[in-house]
Amino acid sequence: MEMIKTVDLHKSFGELKVLKGVNETIEKGEVVSVIGPSGGGKSTFLRCLNLLEKPEEGKIYFEGTEITGNLTKEEKHMIREGKLPKPAKVDIDIHRQKMGMVFQHFNVFPHLTVAKNITLAPMMLKGKSEAEATQMAKDLLNRVGLLDKYDEMPSNLSGGQKQRLAIIRALAMEPDVMLFDEPTSALDPEMVGEVLDVIKGLVSSGMTSVIVTHEMRFAREVSDRVLFMAEGNILEKGAPDQLFDHPTHPRLQDFLAKVL
């Protein structure tokens, strides 16, 4: 079953074209890593998926629903002729509840306790009772080994702990897919492992995940599929072994020669 499908996604920042027609489908249960050089559009692609960046052109289907509200030329024409009803406005907030996102810089809420960081969204948005949300927070904290930090403020956490908190904060919304935007890039080297372990545990439990990462070994280990993005498009994709061992696109060969 298709979880996310993008069709001809275009995004630019001013003059700079960052995405130039990306077509990709992510299946339910699939773990997809996105690798590639900086400025190649990886993060922008990921951020488009939950509309933190709004693509100017192209469509995104999330669990079958088109969420961008973008229309093709033909569709605009047909609507003008009255052959197609005007599409209903999409409430992106509802869809975002089902797409967890983890950021490079954690973005935990510094004014809330660790527990509140986790319970705020489920209580406000999903109407969970305090008892339910608290229990869930404890379970999640326990799962990532942070239960003793329950009452702490995030400023008392290390980078790795903050990122683990950010991951379970997203999980508390019980999302259908998790988007990771370079989750270990801002971490001290000795903390990378603990965060990757949490992600590993998560994907092995069957969570559909899209992971933008520079950790090649990790990408190879956990992914079902790897996408190589550069120059605003997916230049090569495939199973990790094939992509890493037998790269065909010269741009990918060049990239791998530099990073491996």
Binding site: I94, R96, Q97, M101, F103, A121, L125, A170, M173
Partner: peptide
């Protein structure tokens, strides 16, 4: 961004 990604309006 973090708040919006959780689904907050």
């Amino acid at each position: 961004e973090a708040a919006r990604s959780l689904g907050f309006s």
